[in-house]
C-alpha cells in the first residue's frame, strides 16, 4: 500500500474512533455518531404513554385517526410523537408544540388540495396523550385507559 493510501485508511480509522468514543464519553448525539442511549434509562412506571395526532372531520365531526400520519408524512406518526414529546420537555415547549400542530394542520390541508392523501377536510387537528395502565392484562388492541388533550389547532 502506498503512503497516501495508508494515510487515507488511518484517517478513516481515527474518524470512526474519535466520533464514536466522543459520543460515548459525552453522551451527546452527533449524527451519524451516537451514544445509542435508547432504552438506557430505567423506567419503572406502570403506565405506557404516547402522543398521537387525531383529526376531526369538518363534515361529520368524526375522528380521523390517520390524519396525523398523513400530516407528518414522510415522518412516521410514531417518530413525530416522540419529537413532540421531546419538544414538550423543553422550556416554552408547549407554545412550540402548539405552533407545530397548527403548521401540520395547514400542511395537511395543502396536501389534501394537491391530492397527496385521501383524507377529508378537517375542522381541527388534536394532539392527545394516550395512556394505558400496565397492571391490567396487556392487550395492544385495547383502547387507551386515559386520553388527555394537549393542544388543538383549528383552520382559520
Amino acid at each position: 500500500m502506498s503512503t497516501r493510501r495508508l494515510l487515507v485508511a488511518h484517517g478513516m480509522i481515527l474518524a470512526l474512533l474519535a466520533g464514536g468514543l466522543y459520543d460515548i464519553a459525552t453522551g451527546r448525539e452527533h449524527w451519524p455518531f451516537s451514544p445509542y442511549a435508547m432504552f438506557a434509562d430505567v423506567n419503572l412506571s406502570r403506565t405506557a404513554a404516547k402522543l398521537v395526532l387525531i383529526g376531526i372531520d369538518e363534515g361529520s365531526g368524526l375522528e380521523v385517526p390517520r390524519a396525523g400520519a398523513w400530516a407528518a408524512h414522510p415522518l412516521s406518526a410514531g417518530r413525530l410523537g416522540v419529537a413532540l414529546e421531546l419538544q414538550l420537555a423543553e422550556p416554552q415547549g408547549a407554545q412550540r408544540v402548539a405552533l407545530i400542530v397548527t403548521q401540520l394542520l395547514t400542511r395537511y390541508e395543502q396536501m389534501r388540495l394537491q391530492g397527496r392523501h385521501a383524507g377529508p377536510r378537517l375542522a381541527s387537528l388534536r394532539l392527545y396523550r394516550l395512556e394505558w395502565d400496565l397492571d391490567a392484562a396487556v392487550d395492544r388492541a385495547r383502547p387507551a385507559d386515559r386520553r388527555t388533550l394537549i393542544v388543538e389547532a383549528r383552520l382559520p
Binding site: G27, N43, L44
Partner: peptide, 27 residues
C-alpha cells in the same frame, strides 16, 4: 456504556426490562 452510566446495575436488578416488554406493546 449508556445503560450503565444512565441507570447502573438497576437496569439489571429492577423490573425495568419486564415493564419495557409490557410498555412497548402500546408504544
Amino acid at each position: 456504556v449508556g445503560k450503565l452510566t444512565s441507570s447502573g446495575l438497576e437496569w439489571i436488578g429492577s423490573n425495568n426490562l419486564a415493564l419495557l416488554l409490557l410498555r412497548t406493546q402500546y408504544e
